[in-house]
Design a protein around this nucleic acid. Structure first.
Lengths: 239, 239
DNA sequence: ACAAAAGTGTTGTAACTACACCCATGT
DNA sequence: ACATGGGTGTAGTTACAACACTTTTGT
């Protein structure tokens, strides 16, 4: 450990001159099944809130950043090494955790739901559609509301939607994804045009197969083109 | 204190089973002088980084939330009871503070620069234009970059600009403010039209006086109208 | 044959950009 | 008189919203 030690270690534990809160990271893990936006919840195996559903999370270790902590917990739950993760708030109400003063930094993660096998954790983990979330442990209901708001905002600024889809996807999937996140309806033709004018989608030329309807074209998100053009200034007021 | 105590208090200090980081709140306080965006910095009176400039900040107390902590520090520096404050990130690099494991939650605050008299703090506090910020203590350079990015994003979604101006302001002041934050130039006529179409500005009918040029109209931000109309859906991709 | 989803084009409207001259005030 | 900044209008372009019929494929 490279940082200076600011505590005394005794037989009883770690001694500090002033009281300190414990820190955790909790992650709202979003997935998309082609129809609904989904959230991965774990059933708590221990008190407090034993048996209730909550976001995956855990205590910060002294040798990691809060991002590393969140990523570690993500991996434990989903086996994923990498995912798009975004910090969206610190929740520090004095009584938010009955165990004591525990402050959490909340993240949302966007994953391709097809990549997630059950984690190696003994706890039960399950995907819930966003409109069928049970009552959650701690202040996680509130955290979820903030996560949704942040995800909606980010969707305007950054092409985060693609993180929730497989590499190749149909325009209809993408539209359903946007509709699920923003909770609004788009006209199919207008949505296609809007996406085309961004210039960040490639038509792969490939087609769906084995569907019970007309085969749809697969598109791919062109990250290079996005990186290249994202500096352009367009200023719109959205309030 | 209503929360359960999760520590043992001994003569040596507070004892915890696992090591804990200390928590602070740091605030990037933005002001606007009519020309440049400014940031309030304090000169550190003690080590580490003694003599260097840094954002006002301080340690979290056990009976307050991180927002209350940030607000308390704001008041100490500026004497302001209220200000628009927005959390924008947790900075938790293991070595970011030479005193040990100290994690900060960063806020930005938007204040009317005219309301700020010097704080009651012995430390020296000073406004710096955004393009003349000295090298800062700790990782505050990085924090400032993130603060600017967040402020720019928020300016699209929420009428945060008005928080930096007096109650009544001229269109030119408002335009300069937007230009200073976004670092782009607007055509005066087009800017006026854009602001008018939002419908959240009231023409007060009053005029500047004692200026060395034609007297400008004062406008006022109509918060009620904003609250009433902000629910409308307009979806623009800005990437 | 029928059901289900994909593909496709036009028109009216609103918002955006670019652009230049005159007016009021104070020195 | 001059310098400073305020006020104002138009034309071209682009983006947006609203809207329906045809095609492919599988059952």
């Amino acid at each position: 450990m490279a940082f200076k030690e600011d505590f005394i270690k005794t037989a009883e534990g770690y001694v500090y001159e002033y009281p300190r809160a414990a820190m955790t990271a909790d992650s709202v893990i979003f997935g998309f099944d082609g129809k609904d936006l989904q959230v991965l919840l774990v059933k708590r195996g221990i008190e407090p809130f034993k048996g209730a559903w909550a976001f995956p999370g855990g205590f910060l270790r002294m040798e990691e950043t809060i991002e590393e902590c969140a990523k570690r917990e993500l991996k434990e739950e989903t086996m994923l090494e990498q995912a798009y993760m975004e910090q969206f708030g610190v929740f520090s109400e004095v009584n938010r955790d009955p165990r004591g003063r525990i402050i959490t930094t909340a993240f949302y993660a966007l994953v391709n739901i097809a990549d997630v096998q059950g984690g190696d954790d003994a706890e039960e983990a399950k995907w819930f559609p966003i409109d069928k979330i049970p009552t959650l442990a701690f202040d996680h209901d509130r955290i979820l509301r903030v996560a949704m708001r942040k995800l909606r905002e980010d969707l305007h600024f950054r092409p985060v939607g693609f993180e929730l889809l497989p590499e190749k996807f149909t325009m209809t999937q993408l539209q359903h994804l946007y509709e699920a996140i923003l909770d609004i309806h788009f006209d199919r033709r207008n949505f296609l045009k809007k996406m085309q004018t961004t210039g960040i989608l490639d038509d792969t030329g490939e087609k769906e197969n084995g569907t019970a309807h007309r085969a749809a074209t697969y598109y791919r998100f062109n990250r290079e083109r996005y990186e290249h053009f994202k500096s352009k200034h367009n200023f719109n007021l959205e309030f």
